[in-house]
């Protein structure tokens, strides 16, 4: 195991050094909550955060981005693809969000590579952080198998008291650590403390699903006509909050705008939500997923079954963000447990 020790007092210096060469996106306080945003001052990094409103995917698939510029001045319009990536370090991502990025990586690489995401991903290093306490009562990462991660990071930090152990995941991570941080070799005592911390964390997390999450696809396969969808359809406001905060949601809309001078047009990609009424409506008027119940069902099937089957990794990472964001308390854990209870 390639392990180094990063004393806590070295962290601000490390962040400062990273900021020389990278956009550092890390957890910051926003009112009583936390967000992933570019760090301006190392002191604002809050590695003691519980959960962020939006996942770190904001650094890879921003809520809005330009994908192409079209020059309209000549006789023939000229398209200029805009692949806008800058060297980035995502600092302090929890392991649930690391698992979610694996799904996004596969979705954007599949069949027709999406260079907007992939280039940004290629330019991004990930320093993840082991969770030692549940975020709050809504997380169910232990059920979804995302309470720890064996891969998907360049460096992985675990808090052992006065220092972090740094597990080196990639050569790029190792080079970054050598260049930007004052670390020392791990002693037997550090390894002992790490093992203690890791052993102590598991009992703090409880199982909230009443069944093994591996059964989810099979369970949902029997639940397409379950009465719960109609019930959720009655409650859901179709606000799209659940999909906006979801680390594995990546659906988007495309917008074509033109400058006031009419000399340049832009193609803009923006997050979209399958929960919105018009998501599946075609210009002729037909709406292929008109009922809110059907849209709710679509989301739960994506999270519990279809994404996993398509990309061979979990479609829900148990972060609980959709539960916290829902205005009418729709709770994915309760939904899955209800279906399991009536199966």
């Amino acid at each position: 195991m390639r392990l180094r020790i990063l004393p806590k007092e070295e962290v601000p210096r490390m962040v400062q050094a990273l900021m020389e060469d990278y956009r550092v996106v890390g957890p910051k306080a926003k009112g009583p909550k936390f967000v992933f945003e570019p760090i301006v001052d190392p002191a604002e990094m809050r590695l003691d955060y519980n959960i962020t409103i939006l996942p770190p995917k904001v650094a890879l698939q921003p809520p809005q981005e330009r994908v192409a510029k079209i020059d309209l001045e000549g006789e023939v319009p000229q398209t200029d693809p805009l692949i806008e990536a800058e060297p980035t370090v995502i600092f302090g991502a929890h392991t649930c969000d690391i698992h979610a990025l694996r799904l996004l990586d596969r979705a954007f690489a599949a069949d027709y590579p999406d260079n907007h995401y992939l280039k940004r991903r290629q330019e991004t290093l990930i320093i993840s952080l082991e969770c030692l306490e549940p975020c709050d009562e809504h997380s169910f990462c232990k059920d979804m198998g995302t309470l720890t991660a064996d891969e998907g990071y360049d460096l992985h930090l675990t808090d052992i008291g006065d220092a972090y152990t740094v597990h080196i995941g990639t050569e790029a991570g190792e080079a970054l650590l050598e260049r930007c941080a004052n670390t020392r070799a791990a002693t037997d005592d550090d390894v002992r403390r790490l093992n203690e911390v890791l052993s102590a964390k598991w009992p703090r997390f409880t199982h909230r699903l009443n069944f093994d999450a591996a059964e989810l696809p099979a369970l949902l396969a029997t639940a397409y006509e379950h009465p719960i969808w109609a019930e959720l359809g009655e409650r859901c406001l179709s606000c799209g909050s659940c999909t906006n905060v979801c680390p594995t949601c990546y659906c988007f809309n495309m917008l074509d705008t033109v400058s006031l001078t009419l000399k340049e047009a832009l193609r803009i990609r923006r997050w979209d939500s399958c929960q919105l009424d018009e998501f599946a409506r075609v210009a002729g008027g037909e709406n292929f997923r008109e009922a809110r119940a059907a849209r709710q069902r679509h989301r739960f099937f994506r999270k519990g079954k279809w994404l996993r089957e398509r990309f061979d990794t979990t479609g829900c990472v148990g972060c609980g963000r959709c539960i916290r964001a829902c205005l009418v308390n729709i709770n994915i854990v309760e939904v899955f447990n209800t279906i399991h209870g009536s199966a």
């Binding site: 990546y250 659906c251 988007f252 979209d272 037909e286 279809w306």
Partner: peptide, 19 residues
């Protein structure tokens, strides 16, 4: 079949027919 499409390449999600 006709569906709403924004990307045409299996990413944007609009055209999904179940899975």
């Amino acid at each position: 079949l006709e569906r709403r499409m924004k990307c045409g390449v299996g990413k944007c999600g609009h055209c999904q027919i179940n899975d």
